[in-house]
Design a binder for these strands. Structure first.
Lengths: 197, 197
DNA sequence: AAGCTATGTCAACGGCGATTGACTTAGCGT
DNA sequence: ACGCTAAGTCAATCGCCGTTGACATAGCTT
């Protein structure tokens, strides 16, 4: 057993890993609790000390921005299937936020940032690059820009609705919901010029 | 001039008016800044003293709940015209949040409450009563419940989109946006069973 | 006019959390 | 083996904010 385990006990003397752990904890806490979570909680969850937050990130606000950026790295729509997209999304939206923790965390993060004057302008750019641009490419066709806006808006709206609702839809209400929501999405992703001369 | 002006100088010795002023300031601050605004700011804006917040509302949390309730009293869809509804909404959504401060404040309040674990369950009830129920009545027709949910989700989504966008759409992008958004709303408010035997 | 009460003002307290700097020590280079 | 540096720990500080109780006074009642 000369093999060195990377994490046998509490991680010590590994700046990179510590920094990463703090960032990960920050992403989670900022999403779940909001900006007014304590650095002590974040550091605690990361198994680090508060002072290290300052050393590695400079301060709370800088950590927030960094965590916000990091939360947008994943690009989940890349592998969406065009043929089942509408129904898949609608079904997901009929469920609960808990079925989908990772996305929900990122989304709450986005909402918090969107409703904070300090981060809103910054978020605008981020949404452009990380959400609208990929969507525009994925959509293709004419006026892809404007259509991406519409699609993004509707998508966000249903995520909020699901968040507020808190629980899954059931029975006939669920069926009707899925049917109509998928109809909306189907319309939105269709190229309006398809079939024209 | 025996006429008594209600507010000649700083309002004094009028409990009701003071309470109302504090509540009004709270609605604004909670919406703009979030729960972590200071009571001193709220009181300051209301021209009152912090201690009065305790006297009239009991504490910060109680004030928050009261302000949240009060922010949901207005029911703006009551007098929407069914024939122009879709285009009116779409046009409004193509503009900026600043064109529409009152609605924007209420909406930001909703978002904040939705992203806070403490208030989310409470908000759920409120949204049911103040948003979904009126929408359901206004919509009418079959499956009005599920259709109201869908309409609410889409509506919320576009409000978020506008919030993030921050500026008005212009030129061709604006036209396409209004056209497609109003199409979505038109579909949503239509009774699916209309025209059936 | 006197006095009572509701209304408003003020200052202090207590806790909390971000920040900061001094201290400890692991891990590596020499 | 020795020490230097970077990584981690600890405790103190400072400011902020909600809360609280003591105090001042306007305005009504009698």
């Amino acid at each position: 057993m000369t093999e060195t385990f990377v994490r046998p006990g509490p991680r010590r003397r590994d700046a990179e890993a510590t920094r990463a752990a703090i960032l990960e904890a920050a992403k989670k806490q900022f999403a779940l609790v909001g900006y007014d979570c304590t650095l002590r909680d974040i550091a605690g969850e990361a198994g680090a000390d508060v002072a290290l937050v300052k050393r590695y990130f400079g301060g709370k606000e800088a950590l927030f921005v960094e965590a916000l950026k990091a939360s947008f790295r994943t690009n989940d729509l890349a592998d969406w299937d065009r043929t089942t997209f509408a129904v898949d999304i609608a079904t997901m939206l009929a469920g609960t936020p808990h079925d989908d923790e990772a996305r929900t965390h990122r989304f709450q993060f986005l909402l918090r940032a969107a409703t904070s004057q300090a981060t809103a302008p910054f978020l605008n750019v981020l949404v452009q690059e990380r959400l609208l641009a990929p969507m525009r490419n994925w959509l293709g066709g004419t006026d892809a820009d404007a259509r991406a806006r519409v699609l993004a808006g509707v998508y966000i709206g249903f995520l909020v609705e699901r968040l507020i609702r808190g629980e899954a839809l059931e029975g006939r209400e669920r069926e009707v919901f899925i049917e109509r929501v998928s109809a909306v999405f189907s319309t939105l992703i269709a190229d309006p010029d398809d079939g024209k001369s």
